[in-house]
């Protein structure tokens, strides 16, 4: 179907969001999910899927979701780090539901969920 200039702008915006992660320089936020054997067996995969889904549903852009290996605190898995700028926050004992909350609160609303962070849990 023939597109107007406005249609093109819409396509541009929507598609850009999806392919943006091919530009390494242009990231606001990184979520690094532990995917060692420990993480996977503790249920890291459904958490990862939940994060991907939530990011998609909220239409967030410039977000990198990557995996990493075991960081040596296997009893706290599933866990992931959220980097915004130079700030790093580590969330532990995650579930898919909690993961979604982190995306909404931490990334969208810019509020760290203290009670899920490693600092709180380890107290």
């Amino acid at each position: 179907m023939k597109k107007s200039i406005a249609d093109l702008a819409k396509i541009r915006q929507e598609t850009l969001r999806k392919i943006q992660l091919r530009d390494k320089e242009d990231t606001n936020c990184r979520i690094v999910v532990g995917m060692g054997t420990c993480g996977i067996s503790a249920g890291a995969r459904p958490c990862l899927s939940a994060i991907v889904d939530e990011v998609h549903k909220r239409g967030l852009s410039n977000i990198q979701i990557v995996q990493t290996g075991c960081v040596g605190m296997c009893r706290l898995e599933p866990m992931f780090d959220v980097y915004v700028g130079n700030e790093k926050v580590t969330y532990v004992n995650m579930t898919p539901e909690k993961s979604r909350q982190v995306v909404v609160e931490h990334i969208v609303n810019k509020r760290v969920i203290q009670e899920y962070t490693i600092g709180e849990v380890e107290k």
Binding site: R12, T15, L16, I19
Partner: peptide
Amino acid sequence: VIDPENIDEYIALDGYQALIKVLT
């Protein structure tokens, strides 16, 4: 960087914006 068989990906990276600019 883009899928050459997908016009949307070209548009996403400012594709056809130059044409819009000259025409308008």
